[in-house]
């Protein structure tokens, strides 16, 4: 068995009286790629944001490499440097060039010296085909280019895990593939990834395990083959039918 990265137990999250996550439990192992699917409002993004502590869970446990990340004195910033996140809306720093977007976080958070950070950034931008745009500002890039830079920025921190929150949902259809290809490359080098996505074919091809979320719980989980070819639950079948027809 591989090393255990995440262990989530009885995780709950409410916004006011609205319970978004109702008792979530699962594990993530090293080099594993887990995809979370489900309709809008099922709690996928909230779950991902809880893992990164952008949202504070109402109750339950999350351990990362055996450490309780919800304990009061936990070093959140150090942890976040190890667990990268790629957002639907890119969130590139608008005031910084492509290159500096990838350099500054390494310098400020990881205290890397400028040369090391720069070389690392250039290497990562090169591998996703953005080396021509080092001095460009985010406002000068297309959506697909922005998302590739966001991925290079996250990878430049040399994280243990990368979280993807609907990375292609805000993109024009012709730009989706360039981002998915970049993610496939990361999968090939064995990075642990947790992906929330509506790209069913991609999810099916890349994942080791798929979680189907419905109304705040994990209704069904299993290998891509199990979920896509032999779903047990009726709601999973309905979801897939609806989604595959729309694609």
């Amino acid at each position: 068995m591989n090393q255990e990265i995440f262990k989530i137990n009885n995780l709950k999250k409410s916004f006011g009286t609205h319970q978004v996550l109702k008792d979530i439990s699962f594990k993530v192992e090293k080099e594993e790629i887990i995809s979370i699917i489900g309709s809008s409002g099922s709690g996928k993004s909230t779950l991902l944001r809880c893992l990164n502590l952008l949202e504070t869970p109402t109750s339950g446990q999350i351990t990362y490499l055996g450490q309780d990340i919800l304990k009061p004195k936990f070093d959140i910033n150090h942890y976040r440097a190890k667990v990268g996140m790629v957002f639907q809306s890119f969130n590139l720093f608008n005031n910084l060039s492509v290159l500096n977007n990838c350099i500054i976080p390494q310098e400020t958070v990881l205290k890397r010296d400028h040369e090391t950070a720069k070389n690392n950034a250039i290497q990562n931008l090169q591998s996703i085909g953005m080396s021509q745009f080092l001095e460009a500002k985010p406002s000068q890039l297309s959506g697909g280019q922005k998302q590739r830079v966001a991925i290079a920025r996250a990878v430049s921190m040399n994280p243990d895990v990368l979280l993807f929150d609907e990375p292609t949902s805000a993109l024009d259809p012709e730009m989706v593939d360039e981002v998915l290809n970049a993610m496939k490359k990361l999968a090939e080098i064995g990075l642990t990834m947790i992906i929330v996505s509506h790209e069913m074919q991609f999810v099916k091809d890349i994942s080791h395990e798929i979680l189907f979320m419905d109304n705040g719980i994990i209704l069904e989980h299993g290998s891509p083959y199990q979920i896509f070819e032999h779903p047990k639950e009726k709601r999973t079948k309905d979801f897939l039918k609806r989604f595959l027809k729309n694609v």
Binding site: R80, N91, I104
Partner: peptide, 23 residues
Amino acid sequence: VDPGQREGAMALGMSHFQLMRKV
């Protein structure tokens, strides 16, 4: 400033002071 800028910086592990100054 778009709240996404702050979230993006927080997700990378920047402290309040760091993300204020740099972003």
